[in-house]
Simulated scan of single mutants.
Amino acid sequence: MTTPATPTAPSGLPLRAAHTFTQRFSSTPRGARLARRLAVLQLDRWGIPLGSELSDTAALVVAELAANAVTHGRVPGRDFELVLSRAPGAVLRVEVSDASGERRPPAPGSLGRPGPADDAGRGLLLVEALADRWSVHDRVPVGKTVRAEFDLPCRPQHS
């Protein structure tokens, strides 16, 4: 088991007062569905209400990344991992890791457009459209992590 890196803001500085949720799931469609469901419950606990725009958007991104981990990153007998981290007024980060380092998605900004008859190839296009940033990282000791980040609004300051 690997320990997730300390969450950082887009500037690269560590996030303060971050909340983190980490869970492993079976590399099955059922595991992917459960990841999505638990993610929205955790976001609600952190004050991102069920049914809000951010909750729905993050749920879609978790669903796409988990489905990719199950479909393209599955290694028999190995789970995938979901890590959510939130720093108030900074960033909500979604990370999905799998054990397959050989099959890496294209780099952000270089995704090809699927044809109208293609029945796959749209998941990361959705992630790219919905997230403020996304990236792919090597996972130690094996595999990869796909990360999507959402900038959170700063809470208004009271005078």
Rank of each mutant, 00 (worst) to 15 (best):
V142H: 11
F80R: 00
H72Q: 10
L125P: 00
E102M: 14
G12T: 03
A120I: 03
F80E: 07
E81R: 10
L50H: 12
T71G: 05
T3A: 14
L15V: 15
R104H: 01
R33W: 03
A107T: 12
S110D: 09
A131W: 05
E81W: 01
S159G: 14
P7G: 04
V127N: 00
S85H: 12
V96S: 03
A107I: 04
R16F: 12
V136A: 10
G89H: 06
A5T: 07
P108R: 08
S159T: 11
S27T: 13
A67P: 04
S26V: 14
P10V: 14
G109E: 11
P49K: 02
L13S: 15
A17Q: 14
R104T: 06
D119P: 02
L34Q: 11
R113D: 06
G12Y: 07
A90L: 11
P108Y: 08
A58F: 03
T22P: 01
L43K: 00
F80I: 06
R74T: 06
S100R: 14
F150S: 10
R133A: 13
G73T: 01
A5Y: 01
F150R: 12
P156S: 15
R33K: 14
R147C: 08
D119M: 13
R78K: 11
H19E: 15
R155W: 10
E102F: 10
V91D: 13
L82E: 11
W46Q: 05
A66N: 09
P108C: 02
S110T: 12
M1I: 02
L60F: 07
R33Q: 15
P114T: 05
T3F: 09
L15K: 09
T8L: 09
L41E: 06
R78A: 13
L126R: 10
P4G: 03
S55P: 12
D44Y: 04
L43N: 01
D151G: 08
P114Q: 00
T2Y: 09
P114H: 05
R155N: 05
W134V: 02
R33E: 13
G101Y: 02
P49A: 13
P106T: 08
T145L: 08
T145H: 01
D119L: 07
P116C: 05
P105M: 13
L130F: 15
I48K: 08
R86Y: 13
R16E: 15
V75H: 00
P114A: 11
A32D: 03
P114G: 08
V61D: 07
A90I: 04
P116H: 05
P76A: 06
S52V: 00
T8G: 09
E149V: 05
G112I: 00
G109A: 09
G109P: 08
G77N: 08
S159F: 13
N68T: 02
V75T: 11
E81I: 11
P116V: 12
G121D: 04
S100G: 06
P49L: 01
D98V: 03
P153D: 15
P4D: 03
E95N: 09
P141V: 07
P153R: 14
L38T: 12
L152V: 03
T28Y: 00
H137M: 06
T22D: 13
A35E: 02
P14V: 04
R86E: 15
S27H: 08
L34G: 04
S100E: 13
